[in-house]
Design a binder for these strands. Structure first.
Lengths: 152, 152
DNA sequence: CAGTATCCCCCCTGATACTG
DNA sequence: CAGTATCAGGGGGGATACTG
């Protein structure tokens, strides 16, 4: 973020997304926020990030509308950082990363945290790509329409 | 990648995934690979990345099993970089990023590329989180089972 | 606890030149 | 075209000290 060259205007949503949350710390902060972390020091000690960096990241994410600050829920004098609706929209990105890592980055016997259905406790299903009508698609069944979003 | 502090062993699949593909260029290279880019110079001119950086990134991604090299398909003397099965597994990560950006980072009238069903040309469906039995879930319906060993 | 302010190093990254 | 080598800078990011 705040990098020399921005791909914000590249017309590719992937590039624009990475322009906003594509640095190494942001998604980890967001992941922690999904796990219920709200306070500065919780983020700091949990991530092992330098305080200055964390302050910068929290400010950036807030400016970009992914986090917002709220008065402390426990009545203390400090702010809490919570995900906005826009921020919560990143949940599927986190899940996709998690599922890929589970399938390709772990040995079967390795211990890891697991995302489960809150009620049943059963693991959630693999994300699937579907057509508008609900057919399951592979990557090779898709194609990218370059900028053909004509001026309606 | 190759950063001072690695979260590889953190027991959180998200952290481990970011450790491997969490830098800014990697996902853009992978996105281009999904779009059919295979040659060094195609990546270089398409991304505007410095040649040295690109060489490093391609090497890293190859070492990590996300890309592999193949002899040029057109008979020329050079290598091509193509996604492995592990690399192709990142497609849903790209799609999730794309969908989030489309929903939260674009004005309705803004020009952008579009991922469509290769046959019908219709846009693909929004990814959905589902329980093992197929029920649609929200973030708030889930919980993370911390691994046995590591905190996080 | 929740930051801000400094210092400073290292490495990411770009630019350029060189090679096969 | 497909890289490698080298140099230079800027800022990411850690450590520490300081403040309310």
């Amino acid at each position: 973020m705040a990098k020399r060259v921005s791909l914000w205007n590249a017309g590719c949503p992937v590039a624009r997304a990475l322009d906003v949350i594509g640095d190494w710390w942001s998604l980890l902060i967001i992941r922690d926020a999904f796990d219920g972390v709200r306070r500065f020091n919780e983020f700091q000690s949990g991530l092992g990030i330098a305080k200055g960096m964390l302050a910068t990241r929290l400010r950036d994410l807030t400016e970009r509308g992914i986090l917002e600050t709220a008065p402390a829920s426990d009545g203390s004098a400090y702010r809490e950082y919570v995900l906005t609706e826009k921020g919560r929209g990143l949940f599927l990105v986190i899940v996709a990363l998690r599922q890929w890592a589970e399938e390709h980055l772990y040995r079967p016997d390795e211990h890891r945290s697991l995302l489960v259905d809150g009620k049943s406790g059963a693991p959630i299903a693999r994300l699937e790509l579907r057509s508008g009508e609900g057919r399951t698609l592979e990557w090779s069944d898709t194609r990218v329409n370059k900028g053909v979003f004509d001026a309606m």
